[in-house]
Design a protein around this nucleic acid. Structure first.
Lengths: 143, 143
DNA sequence: CAGAAAACAGAATAAAATTCTATTATTAAG
DNA sequence: CTTAATAATAGAATTTTATTCTGTTTTCTG
């Protein structure tokens, strides 16, 4: 990975739908070479995918919350958490057999209902962090 | 927004670089119509962007942490937090003038150094949640 | 310095994006 | 129910892009 690859990654992180021709113009290389570099980054697993980002508000998902979930060591709650609609992230975190999930719902009611129905029964305790406003939210990385 | 638009959003969330021609084939509409629908979704602000997702491991960013930061009401810590390299999310959360950030670093040392140098001085307290393994991480939404 | 490997540019062609026009629904008003 | 207006669509034409191929240049290695 050289400077050119880093520029490509920067561009594709900013706009994943940028055409190969435009990337080529930006980095001042021929389209053929540019394409093979992008393909290589994909094959090497450095680029893992391309996602469209949607406006949660417009989709009626106004609620964002992080929930810390403590479980007993023997429960398999992982596949359950992953499958919950609205759950965008599931992390296993250090200390006390804990999971941290990031979840989007329509409102506080739908969140509370979801936690009650799907999570509470499988966990020792939950601690919910309600997001009021989001100031930054991206998967972009600088390196 | 009808069912066709939802299909388009589903496809672009799965692969933002899918060609318009392929989207058209999937939803069984002419490319011209498909393109105008995608453009409309962009103009309406329903699609807010397209991001390439990168492999953190490959980029040497093995550490992921969430940090809860408590501040006094009068401090402007927001622009500071947003500008920290590796910070992917900054949320203002309910209760006790708190921020929650999601941050990627090279290792525990670089995390601790970052918090010490940039955050501690501006905050009353910080609470760091270290991620051991990530089971799911996407911005994809089903609706 | 010589040879091999990788990276590159540029041309050719296949495919896609984009625009345009005409046709077909859909909707709203009378 | 009919008609006019609006929106959605298909399909053709054209521009642009993606992709492959060939030959050259550069870079690395011994």
């Amino acid at each position: 990975m050289d400077l050119i690859d880093k520029k490509i990654l920067y561009l594709l992180q900013s706009n994943a739908r940028m055409s190969n021709a435009n990337i080529a113009r930006e980095i001042k290389l021929a389209p053929s070479v540019t394409l093979s570099r992008v393909r290589k980054l994909e094959e090497q697993g450095i680029i893992t995918g391309y996602e469209a980002k949607l406006n949660h508000h417009e989709l009626g998902l106004d609620m964002l919350a992080f929930v810390l979930i403590q479980v007993t060591g023997d429960k398999d709650i992982e596949s359950l958490l992953i499958a919950i609609p609205g759950v965008q992230e599931v992390h296993n975190v250090a200390g006390d057999d804990c999971y941290l999930i990031k979840i989007r719902t329509r409102n506080t009611e739908s969140l509370s209902k979801l936690l009650k129905e799907k999570v509470r029964g499988e966990s020792i305790s939950t601690k919910t962090i309600i997001v009021l406003t989001t100031l930054k939210e991206t998967s972009k990385l600088t390196f």
